[in-house]
């Protein structure tokens, strides 16, 4: 089994040598989550104070200090320039166009991901020919089958923003491309 051990370690080493990552992004993301948690706690504390104020019929005064503002999700530098969404802000049901650097290969599947925890919320299927773009929520995607279609070139790929997507900023990524491409998509009604 020394061959197996050697070969697996060689593969792991190859991936390690080619790995990319950014420490600053990690710090930023961790700080952003801490702020969001703090903002949530602050909101809850404010609600408690407000209820207390009403109960005592005492005027509740804001001390004027600004509430912590949660900064929006940022795109991992690894994915900068891998994909462009036009428009970057769209309403549910609206069509968006994805473009890529020349020669980029991908399939017709995409995933809409919650940036905070990487949870996949929706699968989006690009329109092809007469087939219109479509989407499935994570819970409805089970058992669905699509063709594995390889596409090369700059695009555009047409997608539709899921009707049920809540307002917010998401990470939209290729689902089955050999090299992953991602960009931020903001859903706003």
């Amino acid at each position: 089994m020394n061959d197996l051990k050697h070969d697996l370690q060689t593969i792991a080493d190859r991936h390690a040598q080619q790995s990319g990552g950014d420490f600053e992004t990690i710090l930023r993301t961790a700080t952003s989550r801490r702020r969001r948690r703090f903002a949530g706690v602050s909101a809850a504390a404010c609600a408690v104070l407000a209820v207390g104020g009403i109960a005592t019929l005492a005027p509740w005064q804001n001390d004027g200090s600004p509430a912590p503002v949660a900064s929006g999700p940022t795109l991992d530098p690894r994915y900068q320039g891998t994909m462009t969404i036009t428009p970057a802000t769209a309403a549910p049901g609206a069509e968006i166009a994805l473009t890529y650097p020349a020669g980029y290969g991908r399939g017709i599947g995409f995933v809409l991901v919650q940036p905070a925890d990487g949870k996949q919320l929706y699968t989006l299927i690009a329109g092809r020919g007469k087939t219109k773009p479509s989407w499935y929520s994570a819970k409805d995607a089970e058992g669905r089958v699509i063709q594995s279609i390889g596409i090369n070139g700059p695009g555009p790929d047409q997608l539709v923003v899921p009707d049920t997507a809540a307002d917010g900023t998401y990470l939209l990524c290729t689902a089955n491309a050999a090299t992953k491409a991602c960009a931020l998509l903001t859903v706003a009604r």
Binding site: L4, D7, L8, T10, I11, R14, H15, Q18, G105, R106, G107, G109, V111, Q120, T123, Y136, A138, A141, E142, G143, R144, V145, I146, S148, I149, G150, I151, N152, A175, N176, A177, A178, T179
Partner: peptide, 25 residues
């Protein structure tokens, strides 16, 4: 849950730069 939906695009269509030694394993 997405297994059938998100099959990898065939490498004949999209070459994977990471392909190489040890791919079978």
């Amino acid at each position: 849950r997405f297994a059938s939906l998100l099959r990898r695009v065939p490498t004949s269509d999209v070459p994977d730069p990471a392909d190489g030694q040890g791919l079978d394993l």
